[in-house]
Write a protein that binds this DNA or RNA. Structure first.
Lengths: 199, 199
DNA sequence: TGCAATCTATACCGATCAGTATAAAATCCT
DNA sequence: AGGATTTTATACTGATCGGTATAGATTGCA
């Protein structure tokens, strides 16, 4: 009923895999790289995580659960839509840089282009990015319902603008921007609030 | 002094290579893919363009010269910094989508992450992105000198914000955004102008 | 102790990677 | 025609890709 116990910590290994995928992207990270960095033989890797795509998706989930730049609670708990966006974008800027981790959001960077055979991985990440935008739009709709956002505002348009800034932040971070620079970008984006919601 | 003439149009071949690198990125495009898509044997490819990196850099140059989203003249010829930014960002949104070409800016998308051995290609593209930001900052500085931008404005901060939007636009386009959506994002970013320059 | 079950290391699979050696084919010049 | 020069197609290089077959090692249970 119980065979030889595995000799590595699965969670630790997954975290190292996440960091490697984060730094090099899906196609830039080979199974050989992972086997070496995790100090785990390839058969053990496959037994524990399935194939490369399975491992990547699990690493993505771990990223969202730990380093993830997005918090639904930030949106829900804020009293107004504007306050929710301030908190969400401030957190996002802060989450682009982490000591001991690669700069820039995993979800934005790890697979934007690549070979046709990996199109499903890219589509998965596209859906994650669109989910972020949709949540922003939903919070704006709630703001209109709550009365703290003018009902002339276009939730989709405003959400898409801020989602674009969030995507751009990841590239700025990967290009070497410091925390102060990222924070200034968010400050600038937030300064547009009144003109965006038509207040 | 002259041997067998080459049987393909070098410019045509380079354009096809550009389109493939644009769609799949540097590492997502193999020499075999290029040889097939261009209908050119690999030895002819190497003889005409050097190695993969040389070909990519030449394709990048062709992109900037043809599909490139950025025009120095747009910045120079506008009477005010604000007008220059309106034109530059409108053109950028329009350049994200081209019939018969992949969506999203080549320079932003084709190599943001990857293997360590291709770090120099990524660094090259990072420098191109920073060049865009620096030109935006220079135009703002001119606006201050010309008197059409308040001298309290921070050219670097404003330029970095708009550069971030430009980077984000490429990802939105690759994710499937339509022209109207991209235009709305630019409209939103431009609406922030007054609050950004402290007017 | 023996057996079923599980993990490990080694070595391998066919396919593909970037790049090239070789030799035939096609041109210009003399 | 002959020779120099360049491009072509074919076939190959060693390395690496994602993934696996095989067999030995380690466990719990009977």
């Amino acid at each position: 009923m119980a065979g030889r116990p595995r000799e590595f910590d699965r969670t630790e290994a997954l975290q190292k895999a996440m960091l490697l995928f984060w730094e090099r992207g899906y196609e830039g990270t080979s199974i050989g790289d992972l086997s070496e960095a995790l100090a785990i033989g390839k058969p053990s890797l496959y037994a524990a995580f399935g194939n490369k795509e399975d491992l990547f998706l699990e690493a993505l989930q771990l990223y969202e659960d730990t380093y993830g730049c997005f918090s639904q609670a930030d949106l829900d708990d804020a009293p107004t839509a504007q306050a929710a966006f301030v908190t969400t974008l401030r957190r996002n800027a802060a989450c682009q840089l982490n000591a001991g981790a690669p700069p820039g959001c995993f979800i934005v960077l790890s697979a934007t282009v690549g070979t046709p055979q990996n199109a499903d991985v890219r589509a998965h990440l596209t859906r994650r990015r669109q989910a972020t935008r949709d949540r922003l739009a939903a919070r704006l709709a709630r703001g209109i319902a709550d009365g703290d956002v003018p009902d002339t505002a276009d939730p989709q348009a405003v959400a898409t603008f801020y989602a674009t800034v969030i995507n751009g932040l990841a590239i700025e971070a990967r290009d070497g921007a410091g925390q102060a620079e990222l924070d200034r970008i968010v400050t600038a984006a937030l300064a547009a609030w009144d003109s965006l919601v038509g207040q």
